[in-house]
């Protein structure tokens, strides 16, 4: 599939550029990197602010606790690696930092299956579940380049621990240029009346395509971008779902502990039909092509269409 008419952006590049902007505006911003700066794009910050950039080598546990020490002295540290290493390896260091609500920003690049070539060891499909379990943690997942910029800036402004998921590949813009990003507030990307989709990350785009497909069949689909995965405002989720005939969640993450869990719990007792499109409790694997990998794990427009029809039955 080719989508020639939409604007594509690389979220890693947007992230790297936004960090530089933030660095110019606020000298409390410091960046830590565990040898992946050429991919996470923190190399841009390193070039402009070598005195506020710390390569800590391939040691993520140390990186998070060093970030904690910097935060305890008033800095705003952004600690970087791939999602899978940024959350998995230093789990306890992040947890301890959250006990103190320390002002650290953990940025997981190449989230979900987006590091398609590198296989299961490098693909983060349970990072949201792990981070959601930690009290005081905030989890943000931008859907595109536009939102990446807003989210990184919001994270820098917010005083407390934040985990941000950054997509590896170029993705089409789906969110509006205008409008402020507010932590904890899901946004309606497309209005609809029959079914509501809750999605985050690249899956917002896939959901839009599914909605377009179903429009031709007379099915009206509302799409909500849940770019804050924690905290989830139960009231807002319930009001966004009310009046529809069913709910579908879509995420590039395991079905356990991520968006599906959060939405299903938020809607408990409503009697609404709920279906989930997610990675079905399996590890990833290598593929030469991102879209092919997503298809293998059932994260496709067709799967979303099928799920919508199922909740309408």
């Amino acid at each position: 599939m080719r989508y020639m008419l939409v604007n594509m952006q690389n979220c890693r590049m947007v992230y790297g550029q936004t960090l530089v902007e933030l660095g110019r505006e606020d000298d409390r911003i410091v960046v830590l990197e565990a040898d992946l700066g050429r991919t996470t794009m923190t190399k841009l910050f390193e070039k402009e602010f070598p005195g506020r950039f710390f390569e800590v080598g391939i040691g993520e546990q140390n990186m998070i606790s060093v970030a904690a020490g910097l935060a305890l002295c008033g800095k705003i540290p952004f600690a970087n690696s791939f999602s899978v290493f940024a959350t998995g390896r230093p789990y306890d260091q992040i947890r301890v930092s959250c006990i103190g609500r320390l002002n650290i920003k953990i940025v997981g690049s190449s989230c979900g299956l987006s590091d398609f070539g590198d296989g299961a060891t490098h693909q983060a499909i349970e990072d949201v579940a792990i981070m959601r379990a930690i009290p005081n943690m905030t989890i943000l997942s931008p859907a595109d380049g536009i939102e990446t910029k807003k989210i990184v800036r919001a994270a820098a402004r917010y005083d407390g621990p934040v985990y941000i998921r950054i997509l590896r590949n170029d993705v089409p813009d789906v969110t509006a240029q205008t409008g402020e990003f507010k932590i904890g507030r899901p946004t309606v990307i497309r209005e609809g009346t029959d079914v509501v989709i809750f999605a985050h990350g690249y899956m917002v785009y896939k959901s839009l395509k599914a909605a377009e497909t179903l429009e031709a069949e007379g099915i009206s689909v509302k799409i909500v971008n849940v770019s804050t995965l924690k905290p989830i405002d139960e009231k807002i989720i319930r009001s966004m779902a009310s009046g529809t005939k069913g709910v579908v969640t879509v995420e590039e993450h395991t079905i356990i502990g991520g968006l599906a869990s959060a939405i299903a719990f938020s809607l408990r007792g409503t009697g609404l039909m709920i279906e989930a499109v997610a990675v079905n409790d399996r590890f990833g694997q290598s593929s030469l092509n991102y879209e092919q990998l997503l298809e293998h794990y059932g994260l496709t427009v067709e799967a979303i269409v099928k799920a919508i029809k199922k909740v309408l039955r």
């Binding site: 410091v30 005195g51 506020r52 710390f54 546990q61 140390n62 998070i64 606790s65 060093v66 970030a67 904690a68 020490g69 910097l70 935060a71 305890l72 002295c73 008033g74 800095k75 540290p77 306890d92 260091q93 947890r95 301890v96 930092s97 006990i99 103190g100």
Partner: peptide
Amino acid sequence: IEAYTGSLGQGLSIACGMAMAGKID
């Protein structure tokens, strides 16, 4: 008290971060 310690092995890294902040400032 300056930090959150007791999960062993983390204090020296936190100390490094504090010393780095002192260097920057």
